[in-house]
């Protein structure tokens, strides 16, 4: 834990210094996206790296958070914090509804259920025009305020977002370093072993799924207030898959991997844009090379034992 905390201080100092060096709002905007995706992956990595389950519907929870926040604040004039809490509540409820039956079964039923969930959310966003604005979406979502600060510029939102990334990193780290984390880490072994030691494997799988949904929903609310505009095209299956890729590229079950993977796959398309037609080709080759040479993700480049990575 001490090693992680040291890394955390260094990493976040660098991040927080960034806007002082680079004032271009475009780059700061990209960093905000990195932060928002990081919150999702910091939760998702607990599910994928420990409970051994995949969610192909994380964009769905991201959307639930975003739309709940957006709709409640724009159409009903509720304060943004209530919108965020309502999104979290709804996401937890939906995730419980998905996880309870599908995790009772052996195998990747949760992956299938979440795939369906993501698609259903997408369809609802498109079809429920009266509430969601349908395919063209809706805008004018009010900006967040925090301690009297209106978060209406890229820089302010940047600090706000990364402040939350820091907190969510700490929460995930605390979880992994607690008895709950030990139990989650024991799920690595064949199921019969933790079961025979009194660990309720089913409970921990459901727990990890709820954890991941909570993070995604919160990130969605941030997204809504940052973009101030929402439309269904931002919440597709492609995003769900991208989030899974971020975890795999960074390193499964490792919090640093989750941060790193989210960063790389956020920046890569921006960098590759200069290659125009070859963009997707290079992107694909990059992913294939990572899978061949670093199947355990980018964090495996570092030999030192970072505690969160085992």
């Amino acid at each position: 834990m001490r090693k992680d905390l040291k890394g955390l201080v260094i990493f976040f100092s660098l991040i927080f210094l960034f806007p002082l060096l680079v004032r271009n709002p475009y780059y700061i905007g990209v960093l905000v996206f990195w932060g928002i995706y990081s919150i999702i992956t910091l939760g998702l990595t607990i599910l994928m790296g420990y409970a051994g389950q995949i969610s192909l519907g994380q964009a769905g929870f991201f959307a639930v958070g975003a739309y709940t926040s957006g709709i409640l604040t724009t159409r009903f004039g509720l304060p943004p914090w209530l919108g965020i809490l309502a999104g979290l509540g709804l996401s937890l409820l939906l995730s419980l509804f998905l996880a309870l039956p599908s995790l009772k079964l052996k195998g990747h039923y949760l992956a299938m259920a979440t795939l369906g969930f993501g698609e259903i959310v997408h369809v609802v966003l498109n079809a429920w025009v009266g509430v969601t604005g349908g395919p063209s979406g809706f805008g004018e979502i009010p900006a967040l305020s925090f301690l009297g600060w209106k978060l209406d510029s890229e820089i302010r939102f940047f600090y706000f977002t990364w402040g939350w990334v820091f907190l969510f990193f700490l929460f995930s780290l605390s979880l992994l370093k607690s008895p709950y984390g030990r139990a989650l880490r024991s799920l690595h072994a064949e199921e019969r072993i933790p079961l025979s030691l009194g660990v309720n494997v089913y409970f921990y799988k459901v727990f990890a799924f709820l954890w991941a949904a909570f993070y995604a929903s919160f990130a969605g609310s941030l997204y809504a207030h940052f973009m101030t505009f929402l439309s269904p095209s931002s919440f597709t299956l492609i995003l769900s898959i991208l989030l899974v890729l971020m975890i795999v590229v960074g390193g499964l079950g490792n919090l640093w991997g989750a941060l790193l993977g989210a960063g790389i796959l956020t920046f890569l398309p921006e960098i590759l844009r200069t290659f125009e037609d070859f963009e997707m080709l290079i992107y694909g080759i990059f992913l294939i090379l990572i899978m061949i040479f670093l199947p355990r993700g980018l964090v495996s480049l570092r030999r030192g034992k970072v505690a969160t990575g085992d």
Binding site: R182, A183, V199, D310
Partner: peptide
Amino acid sequence: SPFENLTLIENILISLDISNSPSL
């Protein structure tokens, strides 16, 4: 079939957690 990703003492703690675990 030990938990390979846990140290020896953590392997033991897993079962001790069952009866003595603080709230989330």
